[in-house]
Structures are given as structure tokens and as C-alpha cells.
Write a protein that binds this DNA or RNA. Structure first.
Lengths: 214, 214
DNA sequence: GATGAAGTTGACCGATACGGTTAGCGGAGG
DNA sequence: CCTCCGCTAACCGTATCGGTCAACTTCATC
């Protein structure tokens, strides 16, 4: 990959990145033409080939930057430092939203690349995964105090359920095509509030008096 | 579309359907070649063109059968007749699982087709949507008795959250590529049990004694 | 304003893949 | 033996692909 890419104005750099993310997120690796990427980025195909020797190199570069960017944003958000569960979820969510605002298709690109089966790239993708995978660990659960939550609740299940719900919400926006990040943030925040009210013991105590009949 | 398609042995019919669902779910309409569909169905391209005059006809046929099949399965499941929320969710889930067992890619195909932008087919897709859209209505919420649930809970939010969680769970399987429907059913059932325990008032009453301290 | 380096592109190349057609194979039924 | 019918290999004209290259623009330097 040509280092001159980095001396491009940043808007053009992200334009190229986003064009790549977009095209590769819509189709298989083999069915994603370089010409389409160039057009989406607003440059000529020849220039795209000037920055990246071939399609494979561009693809793997996109994958690498995708991973790097995500990890950076997540660690920088402080989501991993926070000990409070909902707090760290909030920070993590904000980091994700910031990412999607700058790179609308990075999420879909990531999952497609991860499950890409084309032998020309799949091996390299899987090989580079080792470094990034353990970060997402769900060890969050280990240092949770059950006393904070409503009695008898399965904390692992609760966490899984919250993860799925936020993923489901996210996919609803993704599928729609146009990424309205502001509306997404509102929805996520409503989810967080809902969970706090339902799962946390303290907030339950406050409203418990209403329901002591029967 | 050639009516002789229907006189094929049913396994071959579903093989062709699934091949179409699969290929069209992986790529854009334009980037999904008929040859690939034929190969996935285990027949020659020429024969595929014998049953469907051209690509567009096959695509719209797939879309129509997709809608028809789904509506049939959902109404037949009794999910719409049930008045109990979790019961109807259970039935609906079972119907969905039955569908995905028979047509593993029908879900992804449906969303991709719905948001397909290719002018050759998008208009026809959108036109035929009118008939099917109102069925999915969330009027379930109207005849829910708040007394059944824990006090102070936002029922609409609860329903949305449950919907998102099941979608998120489903997408996790879908993205992985291989569709392990049995594992999916287990996960869904665990979700349902979890929700019942957390949201329903009755089940909360039973476990409340454990947590009356402070 | 001449010069040269750097940035950028339209046009091109060989190969392949596409949607769709057709001639013909093989088997069953008369 | 003929004929119908399910089915396919091979084919056709065209479009598209990854990748290259010569030439054009831009712009700083002298």
C-alpha cells in the first residue's frame, strides 16, 4: 500500500475508506468491483490502484483500519475502565455511535469481512483476528455485585439479553440503509433507562409500594 | 413463470427456492448470477431459464412466495389468535423457526429484497408490499392488562425491547452463516423464560421474599 | 515562462462472467 | 421405431472485471 495515501487530505482519506466499507459491505469480496469503490469515493479507478496495488491489498487494509479504529475508539471511550455495568455500556454505546457517524458502513463491513469465505482473503482475515478478539471479552460479568440487581435474576442471561437487544436495535437501522445516528442514540438511551429501571434493585425498591396488592 | 415448476417433486422445488434465497441474500440483485443459483439448486442454468423466463421473474417469484409462505406459517401458528403475550410470542417464534429450518436464508432474503434499490425490481417489490405490511401490526399491546406485569413498567418499551433482543439473537446466528436452528430454539426459549421471570408480576411475587433487606 | 516532479485520468487490454438461446441427448411410452 | 419431454452442454453477443499506461493537469521552483 502506497504511503502517499496518508498524506492525502483527511476528508479524501475517509471518503475512500467509506467507499470501500460501503461497497464491500453490500456484496461478496469477489463481487465488489474496484471501479464502484473509486466512483463512490469520487476518484478515478486508476488513482485507486495508485494507492493500493490491487484489490486484495485494499480489502485487507480496510479490514486492518476497521479493527484498529474500533479498538482505539473503544479504549479511548473509557468503556473498559468503568466498573459500573450500565455506565460502561453507555460509554461503549457512545463510542460505537461516534464510529458509525464517521464510518456509516463499518459495522456491516466488519461482520461481512469476518465471515467472508473467499480463499483469496479469508485466511488473512482470520489470522489477524487473534490480536483483536480477546478485547471484546465478556469478563464484565465477573466483577458484578448481585446485590445491586433484583433478587434471583440470572446476570449472565441479563447481559446476553441486553447485548442482543442493542444489536437488534442497531440492525433495524442498518437494514433500513440510511443511518440516522441521532435517532439511534435516542433509542439506545431509552433502552438503558428501561434496563436500569427493571434490573437494578434500587430503582425497583422505589416503585415497589404501588404493587403490593393481592 | 412456467406452471410446470409446480409439478416438480417438492424437494426439487424447495431446492430451487433455497438456492434463489441463498444467492440473492448474499449479493445485490444485479450481482446475483442465475448460473450460481442453478448450480446451488443442482440443475443446469438452461433448465432454470426453462422454469423462469428471466432473472426478474425468478426474483419476483421468490419474493412473492417468501411473503406468502411467511404469512401462511404465521397465521397457521396461531400466534395472532393467542391473547397471552408470551404465548403468542412463543407461537410466533416456533413458526419462524419452522420457516428457517425449511428455508434457511428466507429471512435475510426478505430484508434484502425489501430494501433492494435496483430500478428493475424495486418498484414491483414495493407495490406488492401493501398487502403484507399491515399483518405485522403491533396492536398486540392494546389488549394487554398492565396488572399482569410488574408495576410501573413501560409496556411499549418492554415489547420493543423483547422484539429487538430476539432479532439480535437471530442475527447473531444469521451472520455466522451456518444456521443451527436447534441451538436457536434453546436460546429463544431461555429468553422467554427470562422475560417471564423479570416482567411478569406473579413470578416476581414468588421470589420477592429473598430480597426484602435494606 | 520554462522545467520537472507529482497528482490524476481516460482509454485501453485480455480475460472472464453475464443473461439468455439452441441444438441435441437420453429415456419413457406407445 | 417414433415421438414426446425433461434436461443439459455448448454457444452467443455483450458487459464487466482487475489492472496498466500514456498523457494530461497542477503547481512549485528557478
Amino acid at each position: 500500500m502506497n504511503p502517499k495515501f496518508y498524506s492525502l487530505p483527511i476528508e479524501k482519506q475517509t471518503a475512500i475508506l467509506n467507499a470501500g466499507f460501503h461497497v464491500f459491505s453490500q456484496n461478496t469480496y469477489k463481487k465488489s468491483p474496484m471501479s464502484e469503490i473509486a466512483e463512490a469515493a469520487g476518484i478515478s479507478k486508476a488513482l485507486l490502484f495508485h494507492y493500493f496495488h490491487n484489490k486484495k491489498e485494499l480489502y485487507l487494509f480496510l479490514w486492518d483500519t476497521c479493527c484498529k479504529i474500533t479498538v482505539e475508539e473503544m479504549t479511548r471511550s473509557g468503556a473498559y475502565k468503568q466498573t459500573d455495568l450500565f455506565g460502561s455500556m453507555d460509554y461503549g454505546m457512545q463510542a460505537k455511535l461516534r464510529l458509525m457517524r464517521k464510518y456509516p458502513d463499518i459495522g456491516v463491513f466488519a461482520v461481512r469481512a469476518f465471515y467472508e469465505k473467499d480463499p483469496e482473503v479469508s485466511a488473512d482475515i482470520q489470522k489477524s483476528m487473534g490480536q483483536y478478539l480477546e478485547i471484546h471479552a465478556a469478563k464484565k460479568l465477573q466483577n458484578l455485585d448481585p446485590e445491586d440487581f433484583i433478587p434471583g435474576i440470572d446476570l449472565q442471561m441479563m447481559y446476553k439479553e441486553m447485548y442482543w437487544a442493542s444489536e437488534g436495535c442497531l440492525w433495524e437501522y442498518i437494514q433500513r440503509g440510511c443511518m440516522n445516528v441521532d435517532a439511534m442514540e435516542k433509542d439506545f438511551r431509552k433502552l438503558l433507562d428501561f434496563w436500569k429501571k427493571v434490573y437494578l434493585r434500587k430503582s425497583r425498591e422505589e416503585t415497589r409500594d404501588d404493587g403490593k396488592d393481592i
